[in-house]
Amino acid sequence: MGRTLCAQPVKDRVDAELIAFFDATANSMEPDAAELLVPLRAMLTRGKHASTAFCHNTYRALGGDDTAAVWPKVCAALELAHLAMLTHDDVIDRSATRRGQDAVHRAYASQHLAAGWTGDASRYGMDMALCVGDLLVIQSETLMDSASPDTAQAKALMRVMRQMYRDEVYGETLELRAQQDRVYQPDRCAKVARWKTGRWIASVSACGAVSAHADPETVAVMDQFGELMGFAYQMRDDLLGVFGDSAVTGKPTMDDFRDGKPTVLIALAISQADAAGIETIEELYGKPTLSEDDGDVLRAVIEESGAVKRVEEMINAHIGKAEELLSAHRAESSDLLALAHAALNRSS
C-alpha cells in the first residue's frame, strides 16, 4: 500500500470524519447494513490520500484556517468520491487488488465463497461493488453538501464535485473506447489522462480554494494548477503500473499490459520504437493471457524506445509549468510545490 501524501495530523482528522460519517450512514440503515459494508469500510483510511493532500495544501496556501470545521469535511467527501471511482474502476478493469488488499469486488466475492452460497461468486462481488460504489457517490455528495454552513460556499463546492464526477465518467468512456479500438496515439492517450486524472486533481484543488473563500479568479488558477498536477500524476502512475513494485504500490504490474490501457507511455513507445519493437507491442499489448516473461519483453521494448525518458521529461515539464503559474499568483506556494514534487516523484 502506498504511503499517504499528507501530514499525519491532517490524515488523522480527515479519517475521523470519514469513519464517523460512514458509520453513521451504516447505522441509519437496517441492522445488517454495517455487516454488508465491511469490505468497503476496510478501504476508507488506506491509500495515499491524494485528494486530501491537494485540497488541504491548496486551502492552506490561500490562507485557510486549520482550526475551521469545513476543510476536514470537504476532504472526507472527496476521499469518499475517490473511493467510489476506484471501486467502479476495479470492476471495469477486473483488478484483483487495491491499496494493498483485495479490491472491493474481490472482497465481496470472498464473502460469497466463504459462506458457500449458490451462484457465481465473481458476479456477486462485481454486482455488490457497483451497488456500494453508487452508495459512495451519493454519500460523498451528502457529506459535501453539509460541509459548510455558508450557503454560497456549499453550492460552489457541490458544483465542483458534480463537475468532477462528470469529467471522471467522460475520461473513463474515452479510456474504454481506446481499449477496444487499440488506436494508441500520444494526443489521444493524453486526452484520456487529462480528463480522467487531470480533472480529478483540478477539482480537489478547486475545492480547497473554495473552502478558503477564494475569489473566482483564484479558484480558476488553482483548478489549472491541479490539472497540470493531475496529468503528471497519471504519467507517474502509468510508469509505476508497468515498472513499479506491486508490494509497494499495492497494485498489480501486469494489469495495464493485459487490459491494453491507452497510456501515454505505450503511445510514445509505439511512436518511437523501431519496426521490431512495434511488432512486439502489437502482438503482446492487450493480450489477456500475457505471461510475466512476455511482460518483461514489453518492458524492455518500452525502455529501449525512449518512452520512459520522454514521460519523465513530461512530468518535469508539468512541474515547471505549475511553478510558473503559482509564482505569478499570490498563493503561498512552497507547500504546494513540495507536495507536487512528492506526488510526482513517488514510488507507490
Rank of each mutant, 00 (worst) to 15 (best):
302 I>K: 03
106 R>E: 11
125 G>W: 01
215 D>P: 03
88 H>I: 10
239 L>R: 00
274 D>T: 09
55 C>T: 03
137 V>P: 00
276 A>T: 09
196 K>E: 02
40 L>C: 06
317 A>H: 14
288 P>V: 05
121 A>L: 11
65 D>E: 09
228 L>Y: 15
60 R>S: 03
14 V>S: 03
112 H>V: 04
280 T>I: 13
323 E>C: 08
33 A>I: 02
278 I>Y: 08
188 R>K: 13
285 Y>L: 05
331 A>N: 06
73 K>N: 02
322 A>W: 07
175 E>H: 06
108 Y>I: 04
131 C>L: 15
196 K>C: 08
17 E>C: 10
49 H>V: 01
53 A>S: 06
207 C>R: 05
316 N>K: 09
266 I>S: 01
255 D>P: 04
324 E>D: 14
215 D>T: 13
264 V>D: 00
74 V>K: 01
345 N>L: 10
127 D>M: 14
161 M>A: 01
279 E>L: 15
211 S>W: 03
274 D>Q: 09
77 A>T: 00
278 I>D: 12
260 G>R: 01
12 D>T: 15
81 A>I: 00
120 D>P: 10
106 R>A: 12
208 G>M: 07
314 M>I: 09
331 A>H: 03
161 M>P: 01
191 K>Q: 15
180 Q>D: 04
196 K>Q: 06
212 A>P: 00
267 A>W: 05
339 L>C: 06
179 Q>H: 12
27 N>C: 07
252 P>K: 08
146 S>I: 11
167 D>W: 04
261 K>N: 09
287 K>R: 08
88 H>N: 03
136 L>M: 12
21 F>K: 00
302 I>C: 07
90 D>E: 06
219 V>C: 05
172 E>D: 08
